[in-house]
Computed example of a mutant assay.
Amino acid sequence: MQPEMTDTRASAPVPRTAVPKTVLMCRPDHFAVTYRINPWMNPDLPTSTDLAVQQWETLHQAYLAQGFDVQLIDPIAGLNDMVYAANGGFTLDGHAYGAKFTYEERVPEGPAYMRWFGEHGFEVHEPEHVNEGEGDFLLSNGAILAGHGFRTSLESHDELRRIFDREVVSLRLVDPSFYHLDTAIAILDDANIAYLPGAFDDASRAELERRYPDAVIVDDQDASVLGLNSFGDGATMLIAQRAAGFERSLAERGYATVGLDLSELLRGGGGIKCCTLELRR
């Protein structure tokens, strides 16, 4: 009798399908680190606005190369962090939920983004509670993953439920270096995510494990360069080029990657996803 043969070859990656994306961005024409509102910022170290613009432009061009519809909001002098467009609100089903920032330095961004939403056809909902938009609200498999603990209040999650009539999954962030949800979770496609377990409390981590048993787990080294602060179309992920382990994990799952250097913008506490607000009509 012939011995039973076992196929030990690794299974082929799952084919991925790109989904068209429309995003809002803001050129960092006024970027500078002149105050400290997160652990990444150090106003004692000079920053280069020119370099920030150059690096941002590589992201802008990469999105255009992917076929994204990229829309722009005009930067406003004195709003150093307006480049981090993700924090400007959350859009879904033609509605826009505005941002109400934690720190006074960023408060004027909220009305600026709400004006843009209103001028571009969204039904705008002015927030009652503190929240920092898509920095802490991520759409996944029809539900809204919603962070709280540092920049967004738990009460704002009730506003999300009322406005969008979607399931809202509250996740508590506990590491000050990962103060927004989009620094600790990356949306890979409608059903799949990557995340850093240590960024969450025990209950939130257990909920992520239950919902996403096959999630990509990212280590501290890749997270420390904001590797999870990435964005893609379901087939290609744009990620921090220094997040080598994350890149390998994505390739194993069948995702293409584009590695970018946004190191100057990282000094303000943001990366690829922070510079990107998805527009959903």
Rank of each mutant, 00 (worst) to 15 (best):
residue 1 M to S: 15
residue 3 P to L: 10
residue 8 T to K: 09
residue 9 R to I: 01
residue 13 P to S: 04
residue 17 T to V: 15
residue 18 A to H: 10
residue 19 V to R: 11
residue 20 P to S: 10
residue 26 C to I: 02
residue 31 F to R: 05
residue 35 Y to F: 14
residue 39 P to A: 00
residue 39 P to N: 07
residue 42 N to R: 07
residue 56 W to D: 09
residue 59 L to K: 05
residue 62 A to T: 14
residue 78 G to A: 08
residue 80 N to S: 14
residue 83 V to P: 05
residue 91 T to A: 15
residue 91 T to P: 12
residue 96 A to W: 15
residue 99 A to C: 09
residue 105 E to D: 11
residue 112 A to G: 04
residue 114 M to A: 14
residue 115 R to D: 13
residue 122 F to N: 07
residue 122 F to C: 02
residue 124 V to H: 14
residue 130 V to C: 11
residue 132 E to W: 12
residue 135 G to Q: 05
residue 137 F to W: 08
residue 137 F to N: 10
residue 146 A to R: 06
residue 148 H to P: 03
residue 149 G to Y: 07
residue 152 T to C: 06
residue 155 E to T: 08
residue 159 E to A: 10
residue 159 E to I: 04
residue 160 L to R: 02
residue 162 R to G: 00
residue 163 I to S: 11
residue 166 R to E: 05
residue 166 R to I: 07
residue 168 V to K: 02
residue 170 S to T: 14
residue 173 L to G: 10
residue 174 V to C: 12
residue 176 P to C: 10
residue 179 Y to V: 01
residue 183 T to S: 14
residue 184 A to N: 13
residue 188 L to H: 11
residue 189 D to W: 01
residue 196 L to T: 00
residue 196 L to I: 07
residue 199 A to W: 03
residue 200 F to M: 04
residue 202 D to C: 00
residue 209 E to R: 13
residue 211 R to Q: 08
residue 212 Y to M: 12
residue 214 D to W: 00
residue 216 V to K: 06
residue 216 V to G: 00
residue 218 V to K: 02
residue 218 V to G: 05
residue 221 Q to N: 12
residue 224 S to C: 02
residue 233 D to M: 04
residue 234 G to R: 08
residue 242 R to C: 01
residue 243 A to V: 02
residue 244 A to W: 05
residue 248 R to A: 15
residue 249 S to R: 15
residue 254 G to L: 00
residue 254 G to Q: 12
residue 258 V to M: 12
residue 264 E to Y: 12
residue 268 G to M: 12
residue 274 C to K: 09
residue 278 E to V: 01
residue 279 L to Q: 06
residue 280 R to W: 05
residue 280 R to C: 03
residue 281 R to I: 00
